[in-house]
Simulated assay, not measured.
Amino acid sequence: MEGLNLEQIPRVKKITKEAFLKDYYAKQRPVVIENLIEDWPAYQKWNLDYIDSIAGDKTVPLYDDRPISSEKKFNEPHHKMKMGDYIELLKSKPTNYRIFLYNLLKEVPQLQADFKYPKLGMRFLKGLPFLFFGGRGSKVFMHFDIDYANILHFHFHGEKQCILYPPSETPFLYKVPHALIAHQEIDFSNPDFEKWPALQKAKGLVTHLKHGETLYMPEGYWHHMTYLTPGFSMSIRSVPKSIYNLAKATYNVFVLRHFDNFMRKQKGDKWIAYKNDRAIKRTHQKTKL
């Protein structure tokens, strides 16, 4: 992270619906709300031991930090494991295995009684509360979400670092064409500016989320997560407020990911190599480097 142009994400203890809509949602600015969920049962109950006690027998999909290849489809997991065994792994040592976009609340309905949708003026997609787990040191590569959702991201058990970039900084982030990610060889914790010089021009934001804190991520924001300790988070989503972003989300869901899977099947790793090469060349051309 040293050398990146990052400011701290603004923080508030509490916030009214009117202030949130006016100061952050309308302006599409991130914010950390420290005490939004203190009245949730989850605030007291949710930790790794509790999840193990009620969902330890569930088989969960796992992802690691290997580069994207033609062997896997879009969001296809790398491994599967019982939740109880995975939590034991998290507690015993660092691991790159993460749970990503997993609807555990559908698998274990009793968890749904532990939270409620905040009254902040956003219309949430009620069927999509996803959970994310990671071990100490595991990282979520720099990306933006396929649906351009406005996201409330609630963190539990431990601490994680969150780096965000607004969509305006896309020209400097080595975006891979026909994908939603930055070039995966970039180490955002220790970037090589000789190899990735455009990164020095990108202006982003950073914070460390602790148990019970909530991060608001506006639509289309790039994000990179590092688990500083074992822990997990839950995200709830609201559709894009921008018609333009809603159109891009529709394209991503119904066209882009299917086209990319098709090309991986047809061209294999040559397709991946082509996209990675184009990410570098296009970024340097656009930024005159």
Rank of each mutant, 00 (worst) to 15 (best):
K82G: 10
C162N: 10
L152V: 13
K139A: 11
D57V: 04
D65L: 05
E159C: 07
P61G: 02
L90T: 03
F132Y: 14
K58I: 13
K116L: 09
L128R: 12
L152T: 06
A55R: 02
P67D: 11
R66L: 08
Y102E: 06
G134W: 00
H178E: 10
F74Q: 03
P171T: 01
T95C: 07
G135V: 10
P77F: 07
P61W: 05
E76S: 07
R66T: 11
R98W: 00
L120K: 01
G127M: 11
K80S: 15
P166L: 02
N150Y: 04
E159A: 14
D147Y: 13
Y174Q: 04
K93G: 08
L105F: 12
F124Y: 12
N103A: 09
K175N: 03
M83A: 12
Y86K: 06
I68R: 11
M142W: 11
Q110R: 11
F132T: 02
K119W: 06
K73D: 15
A149W: 15
P67F: 12
M122L: 15
K93W: 02
A149L: 14
Y86Q: 03
T59A: 11
Y97T: 03
R66F: 06
G135A: 12
N96Q: 13
Y165W: 08
K106M: 05
F133T: 03
F133D: 01
D64G: 06
L164D: 01
R123Y: 11
K126V: 12
L128T: 14
E159M: 11
L164Y: 12
K73C: 09
F172T: 02
